[in-house]
Simulated scan of single mutants.
Amino acid sequence: MPTLSGPNVTIRRVRPADHDGFFALQADPEIHEMFGGSRDTYRAMTREAADAVVERLSSHPFAWVIEHGSRVIGETRLDRIDMQDRRASFAVGILDPQCLGRGIGTEAMRLVLRFAFEQLKLHRISVRVLAYNLRAIRAYQKCGFVIEGHEREAAWVNGYWHDDVIMGLLDREFR
């Protein structure tokens, strides 16, 4: 897996030393909710949880750490890669609240999408995002994703049902 670099971020494979980076991020309750977690399931980051993140990313063939200013700030993955149909699903998470709304996540997404379309020769990438996560929806749209539909009442968060927005991006649409 190559390291992917842009002006503000580096996307690279996880290292054992990243445990400290993930632990330093702690956990943010608002970010937890944007990923579909409820307030009552929020837990502060522990050393064991940081170890679990590093282990999970290490065992995933297409998972990267997002680094900004030599600090771990999140992760990104290509999941369920299907080379027959040349498609995958995509996930990205900026875990540092100081890095939200600054274009860092969009830059990270573009690096991974370029790799997916140019190196892996994928045709289609899909994402699902909670309908209330407007920041993520805007970032995906900046990268060319199109809203294809909604999965109604797909997530139970804070005692209420919420829709998932289903988005897709084809290789010819990637900007």
Rank of each mutant, 00 (worst) to 15 (best):
L25K: 08
A27H: 03
A27E: 10
P29Q: 01
E30Y: 07
I31H: 04
H32D: 05
H32G: 08
F35N: 06
G36S: 05
G37M: 03
G37Y: 03
G37C: 05
G37L: 06
G37H: 02
R39Q: 08
R39E: 13
D40C: 08
D40S: 12
Y42H: 05
R43F: 01
A44Y: 10
A44T: 08
A44K: 10
A44G: 05
M45L: 05
M45F: 10
R47K: 11
R47T: 11
E48L: 13
A50S: 14
A50Q: 04
A50C: 08
D51P: 06
D51E: 12
A52F: 09
V53S: 06
V53R: 12
V54D: 10
V54C: 06
E55N: 14
E55S: 15
E55Q: 14
E55G: 11
E55H: 13
R56L: 14
R56F: 09
R56K: 13
R56C: 07
L57Y: 01
S58K: 06
S58L: 04
S59I: 08
S59Q: 15
H60P: 04
H60N: 02
P61V: 02
F62A: 00
F62Q: 02
A63V: 00
A63Q: 02
V65T: 13
V65Y: 08
V65N: 07
I66V: 15
I66Y: 09
E67I: 14
E67C: 12
E67A: 13
H68A: 15
H68G: 09
H68Y: 14
S70F: 11
S70N: 13
R71Q: 14
V72I: 15
V72W: 08
E75T: 12
E75I: 05
L78M: 05
D79W: 00
D79N: 14
I81L: 04
I81G: 00
D82N: 14
M83I: 08
M83R: 11
M83P: 10
Q84S: 12
R87P: 03
R87V: 12
A88R: 01
S89A: 11
S89K: 04
F90D: 09
A91F: 00
A91W: 01
V92I: 15
G93I: 10
I94N: 01
L95P: 01
L95S: 07
L95W: 11
D96K: 06
P97T: 11
P97I: 07
Q98H: 09
Q98D: 11
Q98A: 14
C99I: 05
C99M: 15
C99W: 03
L100C: 07
L100N: 00
G101E: 11
G101V: 06
G101D: 08
R102C: 10
G103W: 03
I104M: 12
G105S: 05
T106V: 11
T106R: 02
E107Q: 10
E107Y: 09
E107V: 06
E107P: 03
M109Q: 02
M109V: 03
L111F: 01
V112W: 02
L113P: 00
L113M: 06
